[in-house]
Design a protein around this nucleic acid. Structure first.
Lengths: 121, 121
DNA sequence: AGAACATATGAACATACATTCACATGTTCA
DNA sequence: TGAACATGTGAATGTATGTTCATATGTTCT
């Protein structure tokens, strides 16, 4: 509602530092990139997926192994692996009935470890 | 239900690689760390917070400035800043009525940029 | 003190999402 | 071919969460 009144009242408050806002706006990430990036980090935002990612640091594994390791159902793990794969965090390779999952790249490990450093400090 | 039957049937499927599971279990992240880490990344998992973090790369800003910059209400921004602060991603400093928010450390920038690299590849 | 204003916050609401359940798919092996 | 089994998946459900709205708090200035 306030938005319609003037350019100087966008929300309930006045823009205090117009020069700063103008300058920052030029370097601001665009909407699509912000959404993609949020979606990417969202994948790390669940403890089950964190454990799966961490487990795959040590070895590639099949769905049953991961389910057993984490004490969860095959279905729950399968759903999460799908999420991880869609975000290109993991790869899969099929061998008969069994599907082996592994980390996509070292990149993921770096992000994981930087997060770990932050929470431990 | 299957869990009660035997150690070899934890979910609906049999553990295929018992040696792998046993070995990986030893290096597995513990429950509390997994939860903390997930909570930490969860904070990056929203496009509004992504934009706020990105904006603070350029300059510290007050709540009104950020609200104006992103075209959102002061209340919505204030709620998100609280989330960011609780996760220790940002700091605040008060100057009269105005509260200035800034990034906590360069660390956050690194994680952000690594994520950006991933989605752009 | 009282008006103006920047910020914080609690409740409500709508939406997103993790897990479960039931079942489908696809492969192996007898 | 049919039984056994690893995996995938859609619907349902409970819970988490982002935004809005109304209002509270705290500071400045007259």
């Amino acid at each position: 509602m306030d938005k319609e009144i003037s350019n100087f009242k966008i929300c309930s408050c006045t823009v205090i530092h117009e020069d700063v806002v103008t300058r920052v706006r030029e370097t601001l990430i665009n909407e699509n990139h912000a959404l993609s990036l949020a979606d990417f980090f969202k994948v790390f935002g669940d403890s089950t997926r964190i454990k799966i990612i961490n487990a795959l640091f040590s070895s590639e594994m099949c769905v049953c192994d991961i389910a057993a390791l984490l004490g969860m159902t095959q279905s729950a793990i399968s759903h999460q692996l799908r999420t991880l794969k869609q975000a290109r965090l993991i790869n899969s390779k099929k061998d008969g009935k069994v599907v082996y999952y592994s980390l996509d790249d070292e990149h993921i490990k770096e992000i994981f470890n930087k997060g770990l450093t932050h929470i431990k400090e």
